[in-house]
Amino acid sequence: MSAHAASTNTGLSHAKLGTWAFLASEVMLFGGLISAYVILRSGSGHFFVPPRAMMGVPLATLNTFVLISSSVTMVLAIAAIQAGNVAKLKNYLLCTIGGGAIFLCIKAYEYNHKWHEGITISASLFGSFYYTLTGLHMFHVIGGMGLLGYIYWQASRGHFTAASHDRVECSGLYWHLVDLVWVLLFPILYLL
């Protein structure tokens, strides 16, 4: 694939350029939603923010840490295949997928807890935004895990080498964006 990249006008492979374009649209999607949240939170006279204690900040901090760690293992996975080490790539991919899985488990616990404390999707604007933003993010995490699983399967079949591993890098870009979105959501939903 890298050989292919050399023949393009920009020097970037199609996949990589396409991924960047896709990420730009993702930024606009989350940007639109986050702007809506900011506008209503600051502008609506009926926006009630639940007390910090109800939000479970420690658990969310742990979750943030888990997701950032999974980004680190993703970087290591790419470094591994750049060195041509497929076994190491597979291990780090598993770590990354595992990070995503832990994130989802903690998230599920949190959802359950909050719902029973009365923060439901329809009870208040805050709840509506909380479930919409984190829910959409969660779908992105699930999608990313599926993608990485596919990459893992391809790695097992020997698709990637030190010279050709475009898809690993593109999946990595996507995973970092998912991570970045969470790093934005965490302070605006839990801390502010």
Binding site: S25, L29, F30, G32, L33
Partner: peptide
């Protein structure tokens, strides 16, 4: 299209909810 449509998508998701 790439940059404007996702914002409507966000709006449409909110309206759907």
């Amino acid at each position: 299209l790439l940059l404007a449509f996702p914002v409507l998508e966000a709006g449409a998701v909110l309206q759907l909810l």
